[in-house]
Lab assay of single mutants.
Amino acid sequence: MATKAVCVLKGDGPVQGIINFEQKESNGPVKVWGSIKGLTEGLHGFHVHEFGDNTAGCTSAGPHFNPLSRKHGGPKDEERHVGDLGNVTADKDGVADVSIEDSVISLSGDHCIIGRTLVVHEKADDLGKGGNEESTKTGNAGSRLACGVIGIAQ
């Protein structure tokens, strides 16, 4: 089992970053940390998408990683996509320092995120509470600013 993974985020604009993942036990939580720069100040949706395909930019990554066919939600919700990591918060300089621990994603097994795409979005994720159909699919997080395929790390 891989215990570490990394993702280099890039987009068409100024947004870029490096996100690290570490899972010490196969059924334990995954620590997610790193930094994203070039964002507007505020909240930005942060999700693992189904495919590791960036051939047409971030759009070819498909929908959120959702092997259990659930509705979109927040990272602490029972009803959520596996890939729903909530929001990252950018400061006035456009930098989001990421520090998350998640017990639904994994670096092995059915919820493995390796080979899938991590995406940072234009807007805040409403965590499935926006009151419309799009909220239950995407959290109304808007366009995909930057993305990268999650790969095994040393």
Results as ranks from 00 to 15, higher is better:
residue 26 S to C: 08
residue 98 V to A: 05
residue 96 A to D: 13
residue 108 S to F: 15
residue 69 S to I: 15
residue 58 C to R: 06
residue 74 G to V: 15
residue 54 N to F: 08
residue 97 D to Q: 14
residue 36 I to C: 03
residue 59 T to G: 05
residue 34 G to C: 03
residue 151 G to T: 15
residue 20 N to L: 03
residue 131 G to S: 11
residue 46 F to N: 00
residue 70 R to K: 12
residue 132 N to S: 10
residue 10 K to W: 05
residue 147 C to P: 03
residue 12 D to I: 00
residue 77 D to T: 14
residue 9 L to F: 04
residue 107 L to T: 01
residue 81 H to E: 05
residue 89 T to L: 15
residue 44 H to S: 01
residue 24 K to M: 10
residue 8 V to W: 14
residue 143 S to G: 11
residue 84 D to A: 04
residue 80 R to V: 05
residue 76 K to L: 13
residue 102 D to R: 01
residue 114 I to G: 00
residue 3 T to Q: 06
residue 107 L to E: 02
residue 28 G to V: 07
residue 86 G to L: 01
residue 30 V to I: 02
residue 87 N to K: 04
residue 110 D to C: 15
residue 119 V to T: 09
residue 48 V to I: 15
residue 15 V to D: 04
residue 122 E to V: 05
residue 152 I to V: 13
residue 138 T to N: 14
residue 99 S to D: 11
residue 144 R to Q: 12
residue 74 G to A: 13
residue 36 I to R: 00
residue 142 G to P: 00
residue 4 K to Y: 10
residue 133 E to C: 08
residue 47 H to K: 05
residue 98 V to I: 05
residue 8 V to F: 14
residue 9 L to G: 03
residue 117 T to Q: 12
residue 99 S to I: 06
residue 9 L to A: 02
residue 137 K to A: 07
residue 21 F to E: 06
residue 138 T to I: 04
residue 14 P to T: 15
residue 87 N to A: 06
residue 69 S to N: 01
residue 139 G to H: 04
residue 97 D to N: 14
residue 147 C to S: 13
residue 101 E to M: 11
residue 105 I to G: 02
residue 89 T to N: 15
residue 82 V to R: 03
residue 17 G to H: 01
residue 54 N to R: 14
residue 59 T to N: 13
residue 128 G to K: 06
residue 138 T to Y: 15
residue 27 N to Q: 15
residue 18 I to C: 10
residue 38 G to F: 00
residue 70 R to G: 15
residue 42 G to D: 01
residue 78 E to T: 12
residue 7 C to W: 02
residue 123 K to A: 09
residue 141 A to R: 08
residue 61 A to F: 14
residue 74 G to T: 00
residue 140 N to E: 05
residue 34 G to I: 01
residue 65 F to N: 05
residue 82 V to Q: 00
residue 16 Q to T: 15
residue 117 T to N: 07
residue 53 D to G: 10
residue 142 G to W: 04
residue 88 V to N: 02
residue 85 L to M: 06
residue 128 G to I: 04
residue 47 H to I: 01
residue 116 R to C: 11
residue 94 G to N: 03
residue 93 D to P: 01
residue 76 K to F: 14
residue 128 G to Q: 07
residue 141 A to I: 06
residue 103 S to P: 15
residue 134 E to A: 09
residue 127 L to R: 07
residue 35 S to W: 10
residue 4 K to A: 14
residue 77 D to K: 04
residue 52 G to Y: 15
residue 147 C to A: 09
residue 88 V to S: 01
residue 45 G to R: 07
residue 14 P to K: 10
residue 90 A to H: 01
residue 108 S to E: 12
residue 110 D to Y: 08
residue 127 L to Q: 09
residue 108 S to Q: 06
residue 90 A to D: 08
residue 45 G to E: 08
residue 127 L to W: 15
residue 20 N to M: 15
residue 139 G to T: 06
residue 77 D to V: 10
residue 100 I to S: 05
residue 133 E to P: 13
residue 109 G to F: 00
residue 21 F to C: 03
residue 92 K to M: 10
residue 109 G to Q: 01
residue 111 H to V: 04
residue 40 T to W: 03
residue 104 V to S: 12
residue 109 G to I: 00
residue 130 G to S: 13
residue 28 G to S: 02
residue 73 G to Y: 15
residue 5 A to N: 03
residue 56 A to E: 11
residue 133 E to A: 13
residue 46 F to I: 09
residue 97 D to C: 15
residue 21 F to Q: 00
residue 149 V to I: 12
residue 40 T to K: 09
residue 71 K to Y: 05
residue 10 K to A: 12
